[in-house]
Design a protein around this nucleic acid. Sequence first.
DNA 1: TTTTAATGATACCTTTAGGTGTCATTACTG
DNA 2: CAGTAATGACACCTAAAGGTATCATTAAAA
Lengths: 141, 141
Amino acid sequence: MKLSNTTEYALRILSFMAMDEKLLYTANDLFDKLQIPYRYLRKQLNFLLKQGLLVSVQGKTGGYQIAKSLNEISLMDIIEATDDTKFENMCFFGFSECPLTQKCSMHERWGEVRNSTLSLLKTTTLNDIKNENNLTNLSLK
Amino acid sequence: MKLSNTTEYALRILSFMAMDEKLLYTANDLFDKLQIPYRYLRKQLNFLLKQGLLVSVQGKTGGYQIAKSLNEISLMDIIEATDDTKFENMCFFGFSECPLTQKCSMHERWGEVRNSTLSLLKTTTLNDIKNENNLTNLSLK
DNA sequence: TTTTAATGATACCTTTAGGTGTCATTACTG
DNA sequence: CAGTAATGACACCTAAAGGTATCATTAAAA
């Protein structure tokens, strides 16, 4: 009922980098702010790179940058890149067949809240996040 | 972003038993219907017993029964019994301090969908589930 | 009173998410 | 051109969730 740590980390990283998307952020910059273990952060950055969400520059003045324009990356894009759960037809009881065939006793009710959650995640982009960013305050604590 | 298997199993078990709450269900009855590995199911039943959600009868004609009246058990009660995540103030980015002090950039939006999910889980009881139960169909697949 | 079919308890195994450690490579800079 | 500060790659460790195995206990029923 909670995103995985890995997914939360990815959301932190990209949301933070969205604050100034033209900047080149080093792993150390991000480590200081985001409360993610340093080596795991490094691994995660490499992963996001391979997923095409980040680009990197090597060498002494290197770092990472968001690969696309902010309004092209939704929160759902980030979640899907780091979590292979299929949310679309997720049955409340975890039955794999529920949504398409028979309906379980939570089908309607659960469908509603699931859809509003999914819709929020799909329609909110990094650009929206940027415009509302108090994330720095947060990450300081 | 998904309930744990263990929690889903607990929801299956109690929702199924709610269909006829006065019946005594054996582990084998439940195993046949609920797609839960037999030995894990046994373990889980013992756990739900200790949590006070079930009562058991030992011996040859024994089995399990829901411990309270159906409208006294909400879905959230079941979730909380099997998952120690604290949902109330769950921050979207997983920051532990978010909800009470500073607000992160998803605070408002996330709060809304989180609250409607929580409210559904708290207000839906096993009695509601019983009244809408096609779960048998489901579990047959 | 023995058998049988149920639950109770507990220890162990397996997989995976999360996290570490080490060394190579790149490219700016003194 | 050597030193340095960054990323790249990859192997390994750890804890917890999920799942399995075994044996003891209970109580109805033959």
